[in-house]
Each structure stands twice: as C-alpha cells, then as structure tokens.
Computed example of a mutant assay.
Amino acid sequence: MTAPTRSCLAACAVLVLAGSVAHAETEPAALVDQQHCMFCHTRDAPFLAPSFQQIAERYRNVPDAQFKLEHKLRLGGKAHWGDMAMPLPADRGGPLSADDAHTLVQWVLSQ
C-alpha cells in the first residue's frame, strides 16, 4: 500500500470516527419530542427526574449500562432516583424500537 493510500485511509477513518462522536452528541430531537423526555428531564438540572448530565455521570462507566438503560427506556421501570419511576411507553408517546432506544441512550450518555 502506498503512502498516499495509507494517508487517505487514515483520513477516512478519522472522519468516520468524528461523525460517530458528533452523531452521539447531536440531540435526537424527534425522539426526545416523541417520547416526551423533557416533561421530566432537562439537559443539565434536575427537574421531576434527574438531568441527562446526571444520568451520564452516574452510568457512563457502569458495565452494561447502555443495555440496562435501553431496557428501562423501552419498558419503563422503578425509580432509581427520588420517587418518580420511568413511565410506561404508552404513557410517554408510544412504543420505542430497540434502535431508537439505543440512539437516545447513546445521546444521554454523551452528555
């Protein structure tokens, strides 16, 4: 492989990785609206539930956190902070696909 080809491949890899990071940090606004996330959460301050930043800080380095949070988002769940539980999907805007739950959790954990 020639040096220019290696340089081109390296540049492409950097762009792909940068796109992945940017994607995770870009708010999935349609999903946030559909699931009524902002009814209970804010980005940076507790409201009726913990902020997205608090959730990220608590779970960022927890093994299997992504899976556990996606599961809770898709099915609802008991309160882990305060008295408010994650509402059932029917009470938040309807069912959430595994891919959409993954997108939301990635975004929250990127805060």
Rank of each mutant, 00 (worst) to 15 (best):
E57G: 15
P95L: 11
H80K: 11
L75I: 10
D83S: 09
S7V: 06
H36L: 07
P28C: 08
S97F: 05
L15N: 00
P63R: 15
A30E: 12
L75R: 14
N61M: 13
D83H: 05
H23A: 12
A49Q: 07
A11R: 02
A45S: 08
E57F: 11
R58Y: 05
H102V: 04
A10W: 05
Q34S: 08
Q54I: 08
A101W: 05
P4E: 04
A22Y: 02
L48P: 01
R43I: 10
C8E: 01
L104T: 06
H102M: 12
V62M: 14
S97D: 11
G19H: 04
H80L: 13
N61S: 15
S51E: 11
L15A: 13
R43D: 13
A13E: 01
P95Q: 09
A11C: 02
M1A: 10
P89H: 03
L15H: 00
H41F: 08
L109C: 07
A98D: 14
L31C: 05
S7F: 08
H102F: 12
H102C: 10
H23W: 13
Q35N: 12
G93T: 03
V32W: 12
P95W: 01
Q106Y: 00
L31P: 04
Y59D: 08
Y59P: 06
T5K: 07
C40R: 06
L9F: 04
S20R: 07
A24C: 10
N61A: 15
D44P: 02
M38I: 07
L69T: 09
W107R: 04
A85W: 01
G82D: 02
M84I: 14
P46R: 12
K68C: 09
P95V: 07
E57D: 15
A18S: 09
L31W: 03
W107T: 04
G19V: 07
D100V: 09
P89C: 05
S51M: 10
I55A: 01
L9G: 00
F39L: 09
L73H: 06
Q53L: 10
D64M: 12
L17A: 13
V14L: 14
D100N: 15
L9M: 02
L109F: 09
Q54C: 06
G76W: 07
L109D: 00
R43H: 11
L88V: 10
Q35G: 08
L31S: 00
S20V: 06
I55Q: 00
R92Y: 01
A90L: 12
P4V: 07
H41E: 08
M86G: 06
K78W: 04
S110N: 02
A101V: 07
V108Q: 02
A56I: 07
Y59S: 03
H36T: 05
G82W: 04
P95N: 07
T42H: 10
Q53V: 14
A45R: 11
H80R: 10
A98M: 01
N61Y: 14
L48Q: 12
L48A: 14
Q54E: 15
G76D: 09
S51V: 11
A49W: 04
L69I: 13
R58P: 02
G94F: 11
A22P: 03
M1K: 03
Q106L: 13
Q53M: 12
D100L: 03
M38P: 01
L75C: 11
R92W: 03
L75H: 15
H71D: 15
E57M: 11
E70T: 08
H102T: 15
A79G: 06
L109K: 04
A85F: 02
S51P: 11
K72N: 13
L69P: 09
P95I: 06
K72P: 01
G77N: 11
K78D: 11
